[in-house]
Each structure stands twice: as C-alpha cells, then as structure tokens.
Amino acid sequence: MQVAIWQVIVITLIAFIYRIERYGTQVNNYNAVLYAWIVGLILGDGLTGLQVGSAVQLMSLGVAAIAGSSVPDYPLAAMVGTVVTIVTGQDQGVGLAVGIAVGMLGVQLDVVAKVLNGFMARKQLAYAQAGEYDKMKRVTFLGPLFYGLTDALPMLIVLLFGGDAVNAILTVVPSWVTSGLSIAGGLLPVIGMAALLSYMPLKQYASYLVVGFALSAYFGVGILPIAMIGGAAAYEVYKHLTSTAVANTALEGGLEDE
C-alpha cells in the first residue's frame, strides 16, 4: 500500500512520543503490543500490528534495560515491523527481520544520545552556578529532544523508503529467504522464554514450569486461567515465606534478649 503524508507524520510523532514516554513517565516502556497495534490501526490493519507486536513482545520478555544498559529497542522494532509488513504486503517474518534490524540500530543511536546528553548536563550545572535558574530548568528539555529523535528519525526513514527498499530486495532474493524469515519469526520468541528462565528461581520452583506446560500443551488451557493458578500458588509461597521470616526474626529477637 501507499503511505499517506498524514500517516507518515502521525507515526513518526508516535515514535518520538514513545521514546520520551519510555524514558519519562515509563508506563508503556515495555508494551510493544500496544504500540504496534496503534501503528497498525493508523495504517488500517490493527490485526497485523497486534500479531507483529506480539512476536516482538515475546522476544523481549526478560530482556530488560537496566541501569542504562543498551538492549534492542523492541517497541521500535515492533512498530517498524508492522509498517514494513503492511506496506509491502509481505509475510510478517520479513517485517520482523527488518524491525529487529532497525531496533538494533536504535541501540547505536541511543549511545549517541547519551553522549550528547552529557553536554546538556554540563550546561545545566553551569546555568545553576551562574544563578540562571530558568535556563537551568529549560535546558533539561534537550534530553527528551535527543532521545525522541533517536526513534523518530529511523521511523521516518523506514516510512519514506522502507517499503520500496524491501520490495526491491525481495524481487532478487530466492523464495526460501522469505519462508526462512517467516520461520525465524515463529522461533524468535524463544529468546524471551530462555531469558526469563535465567532470571527466575528455576532450580527451586521448576515444578511450576511443568504445571504451566502441561496445562497449556496437553489440556489447551488459556493464558488467563493459567496465570490465575500460578497466582494462587504464588500467594501460598508468599504466605509461607513471610510467616517463616517472622518466626525467624522472633527467634533472633529472643536470643538477643538472653
């Protein structure tokens, strides 16, 4: 499909706002599904947005950006993947591959913005020392500007040239490339699963992994009822842990008294 000017403007703006929100109010910083859905709706295909967003979301699980570390920009990858899938009319795997590539590029731009923000920080301190407090506050807004652009610019380039470029490449590559990318799209969520397992108390509570697996794979239970069962088990574990903690404290207190 052909992207209209208003769609280019609105989606670029969403990419800008997404980034400031991700670093500022931090409500949708990990919500790739939401952003891909919105971008899909703007392009007239919310369903594709939801599906591409979901694939990226699953990859991203457990891969959090902590303490200023740089990880692939997953919501941007989801938005770019949605745009490319819808604009080219190709398989979602193609959109995902382009989206992930742009999301990784986003990490490099992120480093640039963090360096540029060093100038902002020094400027801010200089204004404070000079007693120019209004300028001190105002110069801080360079931060969100730098960060917003790190996502808005790649998005704009994809919107303007992405569709044609991808289609031009796909006319020369053999068909197994597109089916290979589609297979990769189905397999990539495994990264999120593995990353999560390495965070969680796997050794201690592996049995709950088996419970969830059996309910889903053999009984076909949906995710919400499984989450409820998991939640019930979690509550029992919490009660048990806090009651033993209290008992231990009481015991230690008693010993100190003697």
Partner: peptide, 18 residues
C-alpha cells in the same frame, strides 16, 4: 517467580513455533 514460571511453562509450547 512462581507465577512467572507457571506462565512461562504455558507460553513455551504455545508461542514458540517450530
């Protein structure tokens, strides 16, 4: 973590497509 493991157990067979 217990809740998370239950959910991940359910997700592996349904979202990883191979």
């Amino acid at each position: 973590g217990v809740l998370g493991l239950t959910v991940v157990g359910a997700l592996i067979p349904s979202v990883v497509k191979l």
